[in-house]
Design a protein around this nucleic acid. Sequence first.
DNA 1: CAGTGAGCGAGCTTCCGCTTGACTT
Length: 776
Amino acid sequence: MNKNLVIVESPAKAKTIEGYLGKDFIVKSSFGHVRDLSTKDLGIDINNDFKPVYEVMPEKKKMISDLKKIANSSETIWLATDEDREGEAISWHLAEVLGLDQAKTNRIVFHEITKSAITEAISHPRRIDQHLVNAQQARRVLDRLVGFELSPILWKKVKPALSAGRVQSVAVRLIVEREEDIRKFQSTFAYRVSGIFEVGSPIGIATIKAELSKRFSTLEEARAFLELCSKATFKVADVEKKPGKRTPAPPFITSTLQQEASRKLGFSVSRTMTVAQQLYESGKITYMRTDSVNLSQTALGMAKDEIIKQFGKEYHKSRHYTTKSKGAQEAHEAIRPTYLNQGTIDGDAAQNKLYDLIWKRTIASQMADAILEKTNIYIDISNSSEQFVAMGEVIKFDGFLKVYMESSDDDTEQTEGILPPVTKGEKLRMQQIDAVQKYAAQPSRFTEASLVKKLEELGIGRPSTYAPTISTIQKREYVVKDDREGTTRNYVQLTLKEGKIKEAVKHEKFGYEKSKLFPTDTGELVTRFLQQYFDDIMDYNFTANVEKEFDEIAQGLKVWNEMIRGFYSPFHKKVVETLESGEKAKGEKLLGIDPETGFNVYVKLGRFGAIAQLGETDSPDKPKFAGFRKGQTLDNITLDEALKLFEFPRLLGQYEDVDITVGIGRFGPYLLHKSKFCSLKKTDDPATITLVRAIALIEEKRTEGANRTIKSFAERPDVLVLNGRYGPYIAVGKNNIKIPKSTDPASLTLDACLKLAESAPAPSKKKFIPRGKNRS
DNA sequence: CAGTGAGCGAGCTTCCGCTTGACTT
């Protein structure tokens, strides 16, 4: 008979804890939630006080039956899941499923994974907190009601297979509204004046760059000011020195890790989480899904030792951070290296980079402030009341900056370095003054990571769901991650030098975007639709408001199913009304008339995206349809552009006695020749492409195809060494295998290829996804 | 990741939150 069974959520945690507890304890993990609402229908018995219909999740069945056996032969069971709403619920579900007597089952929580903390927890067991469990049930039931009643409305009124939910729909709304802001944005400009002044110092001539605080709205005003300056003398009006300091950022939590990895390493949100998971599983870092900035005593001690050892005592400052984001539940520590004396690890490139980031951020968070000296030099103009100001900043003591500096999303901030010493009243010689036409920047689009930041600020979503939410809204094609080339525009620059004013027209690029989130037509339509009929759920404060009620349930001040009833009655009424009388939202509009046929040209959202339609749906002659090109939306397409879409596929000419046609497919314009496809290049326009160019493209593709094969084997025609878009690889049937960097692809033998194929990780099967585990 | 290129509707889709694993048509 086994004495003690401890159940935690994560297997990695189970392994560490088992080491601390000794042989009287078996530690197992539940792998997260073990039961969920049935998906056969709503999974909630509405007429029976919203009684949830729970089922053991299919992929957990085996684990539960194994756990049952161990539980039955154990004297004492310790439920040690996380100390938050979800963790409490997991313990309760376990107790239910394993048939445990709750009056005898011990519920414990660890605040850190150390021997003393665990022994301490074991000596203070409690019972399952049913109020907290009920708060979780309310959360779960509410999310199911919203998701499973709203989504079918979308299937009927907009497009099949769409989805709506408390979190994802608001995430999409943020992106849609940002895009609207950008569309509405009217770029304004002002002339910004800056001057370069010379000061004679004992060691030679130094320059000071200073800005005029006043901006001019017209070119004439700017010119008049420069003319004034050409006759003016300049002197130092005042020198102001102020001490300043900079403080390190708190240690990483999930959202801040995602942001910094995005800004500094260019990782997508899901990439960051995958790599962090690897680091966690190999014991390099603490748990990566957390909203707590807290560091354990052990970590503080290790950080102190490491900082003193590497940088000296004056660089250390112990800091305790507290979590302030809405809805934070603090079940874990901040994300930090397990051993802070390990500055580097032995991992792959991505792991090393992410680890380095985490190590630096953690260490910096326990380091001293950076001490600065800020200097402002005010420069008087003899014939004007305006003033130039030069701002400088000198680091007196680098403190945490020695290790780590947080990046920001807008890279506009710029600080001047050291300013030369000047004294009040000192005359300055003007070298040059520029007045530059500067346009105000349009609102910036969200990146994956900055969207996560915004969601967290609003208290929407949890550390474990940020990455899945971001991929859901892309999978549903509500938003796309895309780049924009940007366009050039002219601006005017006036330069005053050696008594003369010169005017020049210069160019600048603007609107360049890289990996930004753009709403699709579907995203915009669905958002508009949901806002029209369900504005309360689309409200940015909806989650925060229901969270307040969940908290009251957790404190025993409210009954969970009464709260749900209060929400559901009006909500469901609206659902029924919308289904009955809500108009279909296909975004259909009449663009105009085709001058050739006289038929109406419509645009609308079809099953596979936006389409143009020529003719009437109910006419005996079926209408013609054509899909949009990239970048075209229901909002921005013109009649001419729509008419062009119907010109494809068109016959271009003949090559080798066979027709070449130009078409537009789902991946852009293409050529079709001898039943082979060939994409047009970005610079080619399918409307104007010549036969000569088309033949060149086809030939190019042929030689590319010929160069594709590096090696083939007569005895195994299905094994090939190929040159792909991402470098050489081995193809065995339909599987593609990476070639190690150290190997020369041309030297590979058949045996070597097959060996590599065998040792390669099994191809991930994404085609068939079992129910209940359909994310990542 | 390693190449794709319909069709405008015949019967499915969906939520949020915990957590990692992988064999059958």
